[in-house]
Amino acid sequence: MALLEIRDIHTYYGAIHALRGVTMSVEEGEIVTLIGSNGAGKSTTLRTISGLLRPRQGEIHLRGKRIDGLRPHEIVELGVCQSPEGRRVFARMTVHENLEMGAFSRREKVPTADYDRVYDLFPRLRERTAQRAGTLSGGEQQMLAIGRALMSAPKVLLLDEPSMGLAPILVEQIFTIIKTINESGTTVLLVEQNALMALGIANRGYILQSGEIVLTDTAAVLAGNEAVQRAYLGGD
């Protein structure tokens, strides 16, 4: 049974039919990437999984338990946490308070080891624990957004465009860290416009176009696919 399974979901923004029957699955331990151009419906897919949007049709299952129709906070408690597009850190809270918010869904006392794990992944954040998140650089905010999501100890980590707006060297760093997070046991669903980087670390990929999955295969095959190269990898 897949860890996360999305079956034929249709999501609307008002009258706009944004997702037109998206079906995909994520197996335990994988990195799966969802690739598509601007406006294809990538973020909409993640927002639907997280419960910020309700699909009008279709089902979403987490280890066989149906989660579509649940509210965002209930979905986090079941182990699906998202680092949203545009980072969305709590600007007026400190770095450490942001991480505390990440652990909000865990009712037990959060061990310091969990904070240390995030600070070890992102040493830059450790230097800035007491600094307000709004004053961090874009790259640091992205690290904080990922670290914050990790604090919920998710089974599936949803990452929405973690490379957006970052310098190439930082992008590389972030992707290396995503790989590390995955190797330590967290399943990742990665939404990216930077298809080359995403396919570089993913096991499998889905190509989303105008709200529909048009292609799916292993990352290696997709990276070699001519149409994919033309459309998303800047090849010719």
Partner: peptide
């Protein structure tokens, strides 16, 4: 500060 993101954190 951000109701949607608060929801994503479990609020």
């Amino acid at each position: 500060q951000d109701p949607d993101t608060a929801g994503l954190m479990g609020v």
